[in-house]
Amino acid sequence: MSAPARVPFHNPGWAGNTGEFDLTEADVRGTDFVGERPLDGGHESAAPSYPYMLPDKDPDAVLFEGPYKERFEKIRTRYPTARGALIPTLNLAQELRGHVSPETMDEVAALLGLASAEVRGTVTFYTMYNKRPVGRFLIQVCTNISCSLCKGEEVLDAFLRHTGTELGETSRDGDFTVIEVECLAACGFPVAVQINSRYYENVLPDDVPALLQRLREHGE
């Protein structure tokens, strides 16, 4: 019998095999993305935000100015309470600063008129908020059941070995932090790995050195 069939390791679009979907990160993060049509009472558009980080992080970035301010204001109109906007606002803060420090939590609390303790309670509940700085690339390897059946732990080991780090630690050059994550909802294409915002699917231990090289050279 032949070896298990698998899609060859390449990511033509976002998240694996998405064919011609060729937006770049720059495209999707542009200001036009949040829409141009403010309407009475609220902003009728999609204004989502993402709890991931840019490769270039600025822990001292202002909350918020320029296009980020615009996105924040649009987000605020999409929820009936200020508190409802908390998670999208935190997402925006992390996208900009790379992690959510206690100071960031306080600033976000002030922006939305919430108690700091409430904001801290929320931040620490969610795994995607980095409570301390991480490397330029946050490598998240799924080792849950379907991936575990298809070499999940070996892929995790390969990442640790080739980056020379311990689990959760950042490599000396500041490039890589490797962590283990729970199911990424890509179980049919194991092993699923998320690096910053992007999914890499069908990753096997042997693919790891080339993947790291690609990150160093191309930034994604």
Partner: peptide
């Protein structure tokens, strides 16, 4: 009818219906 795309921040329990509601309100899920 308004349609809003909301993105969470990582927690399996937010898939449970009332956990999702708390999360959408900005609380722990």
């Amino acid at each position: 009818i308004e349609v809003t795309v909301h993105v969470g921040a990582g927690a399996y329990i937010c898939g449970e219906e009332t956990g999702l509601m708390n999360s959408l309100e900005g609380r722990r899920g």
